[in-house]
């Protein structure tokens, strides 16, 4: 199963730090991403803002606050939505797809 992901989803906490999940493989091309989730067998096409957030996390773990700061400098949201809200909803979507995981929770195990 696959999906094209272009828009953010529901809210998530601002203080958590996120990274690309261990079972995920990806390729970034032309500001978009093809992402394979080894846990579910799904392949996803990330575009637009979702691709930008995912690409940022491919560089290294980041918090919602850090991503929001970066988005304010680098991205102009076509929807006119506040970057913080868009980041929160996009992280929630990526988490729901099991493409990212919280580093703090991992370290606490």
């Amino acid at each position: 199963m696959s999906a094209i992901i272009t828009s953010p989803d529901t809210a998530t906490s601002a203080d958590a730090t996120w990274r690309v999940a261990g079972q995920v493989r990806w390729r970034l091309w032309e500001d978009e991403a093809a992402v394979y989730n080894g846990r579910t067998g799904d392949t996803h096409h990330l575009a637009d803002f979702a691709a930008w957030v995912f690409a940022m996390l491919c560089r290294g773990p980041a918090s919602a606050t850090g991503l929001t700061r970066a988005a304010e400098e680098a991205v102009e949201l076509r929807s006119g939505e506040a970057p913080g809200a868009a980041i929160g909803r996009t992280l929630a979507l990526l988490r729901r797809l099991n493409l990212i995981e919280e580093t703090r929770r991992e370290q606490g195990r």
Binding site: S2, I4, R25, E30, A33, Y36, G38, G41, T43
Partner: peptide, 25 residues
Amino acid sequence: SRPAGLVEIAHNAMNHSLHGEDGFE
């Protein structure tokens, strides 16, 4: 777009899920 094409071709693969991560790579 290559990512869009890759996802579409994965849809058209008869046995992509069987090859898992190796199939994606």
